[in-house]
Design a protein around this nucleic acid. Structure first.
Lengths: 296, 296
DNA sequence: AGAGGTTACGGGCAGCGTAAGGATC
DNA sequence: GATCCTTACGCTGCCCGTAACCTCT
């Protein structure tokens, strides 16, 4: 019996995902196949790599050592393939997690660029709030998160994607003063991010200080925020990049309020040790695309 | 099409040996199979790795880059297998080149140790003069040379195996004085190594100085030297380790001549960059065995 | 009962060896 | 013509997916 790359790949994913089934999904194959690869690998190496109890897979001590070695082998294989110039030869799935703001600004451009550079990589998209993306990244159900600071955990791969300022917007018909005070805004519902986000907290704190019984309307969906604002149902602090089109078309107008929440600071985050090499490249591509939109 | 380890292995050996045919021999397969592996690898990577003219195989520029990557992949795979504890899982051939002195001293012990540590590695033995071993090592027709200094080329792997003093020996019946002078020796033929070896040169130079018309009888085979000496056909300077048994049995006696050629300094030499990892281990084993024989 | 890993089984494809083909010296 | 790589072809064996099975919660 011979050690081969597919066995090592399966081993790594089982170890990382903690389950044969999930590894099978990740590698586009069946669970029995993963089972076979692992057991072939074990007999090839003559050692038990993992203990399988119902409901859990735990590496043995030996298995942990082997895992490091296996990563080195697969990393260097990826490096070889990349260096062949045919990086497009890399097939696989990039499980990409993004926040909604990115969906509505430069996701399309990013996907286009990814398609150009890695035509054989399929993108599995997850849109969620930054806080959730962080969890998914940590348990490796996504490879790359494009999310906004702050983070509760560090990741070994981290590229800043620039700063995105927020602007207050309202429907044109709302007729707010050019320099509105807090009370002027507080007359209308304030549409914000979901309740436990940084933005919600910050806006709540601001208006608590500014007095008045402000109505904060959290929404887990920014697109619907925009619709609601343009329907005159309230005002909102939204990333400028997200509303350029609506402002240009005068579907929304900017509100000249003196205070805005801190800008969004976006980062591309991934696990540099465990993720496939092309994830780092994808992160760099994201940085390039983000810069385009950061400039204007 | 998928890159796999066998393709990379074939690629490395073709590059190192400069020939599909030799690579096929080395990998215990057929030449068309090597051809197929290389062409699969090329199509997997989408590049041409080597130009094949009749009679020569030359790497392309791209191929040279890939070769380095490929080595990293295979080296790390070997490391993984070694780390699995089942180093014995490593199958392959150790092409070992040794000088005759080693054959007649500790080769048996070395082979035994190798068999214990790597039961699945078969040893292909070449016995030749040090100078020839050096050439074979360089053109990679052997993996590991156990040979004596001096060397005309450096190798990246080099472990000193100790110093082996020479002694003058003669047949007991020859009745030489306890403290013979050069003339006493020169009465008999002097049996030595082959003509262009360091030892031959050194002995020739010594007796040229000592005057007299000495008869130097070169032999490319040390075992026959011993036989000839014990038959009283001459005297010889031989490695002490090679004649301990004959001296103990009084088949030979030591000659108390004041001068002996410089001791043999043996080294285990190999190409640390290109050779499989277990070659380095084999060299270490050789060093261990040699030390046993160096001590007594 | 459901989730998760193993075993059993059959089909397809890839890898191998033999043999013949071409190119170059 | 000798040497060396490529192509053609048939076979074997491995790898994969389906399905049934086992075990633990």
């Amino acid at each position: 019996m011979d050690v081969n790359l597919k066995q090592l790949e399966a081993f790594i994913w089982v170890a990382d995902l903690g389950s044969f089934r999930r590894a099978a999904d990740r590698l586009n194959t069946t669970q029995p196949n993963i089972s076979a690869r692992i057991s072939k690998l074990e007999s090839a190496l003559g050692i038990t790599l993992m203990e399988r109890d119902a409901g859990s897979v735990r590496l043995t001590a030996r298995g942990r050592d082997m895992l490091d070695h296996a990563r080195v082998v697969l990393r260097s294989t990826e490096a070889l393939i990349s260096a062949s110039g045919r990086a497009n030869q890399l097939d696989g799935t990039l499980r990409l997690g993004v926040t909604e703001m990115i969906v509505h600004t430069w996701l399309r451009e990013l996907l286009k660029q990814l398609r150009d550079d890695y035509p054989n990589v399929t993108v599995e998209l997850t849109v969620d709030m930054s806080a959730n993306l962080e969890g998914e990244l940590h348990q490796r159900s996504i490879d790359l998160a494009l999310q906004n600071a702050p983070f509760s955990r560090q990741t070994s791969g981290n590229i800043a994607l620039g700063t995105y300022p927020l602007v207050w917007v309202a429907a044109p018909g709302l007729a707010l003063p050019a320099r509105p005070r807090a009370e002027d805004l507080a007359m209308h519902p304030i549409l914000t991010h979901a309740r436990h986000t940084r933005l919600y907290q910050e806006i709540a704190a601001h208006f608590a200080h500014a007095g008045g019984r402000t109505r904060l309307v959290p929404s887990s969906n920014l697109a619907s925020c925009i619709y609601m604002v343009s329907e005159g149902m309230g005002i909102a602090a939204l990333p400028a990049a997200m509303v350029v089109r609506e402002l240009a078309r005068c579907e929304l107008v900017q509100v000249g309020y003196k205070w805005v929440p801190d800008s969004l600071r976006f980062h591309a985050r991934y696990d540099a040790e465990k993720a496939p090499l092309f994830v780092a490249s994808a992160a760099k591509i994201a940085a390039r695309v983000a810069r385009l939109f950061d400039a204007d």
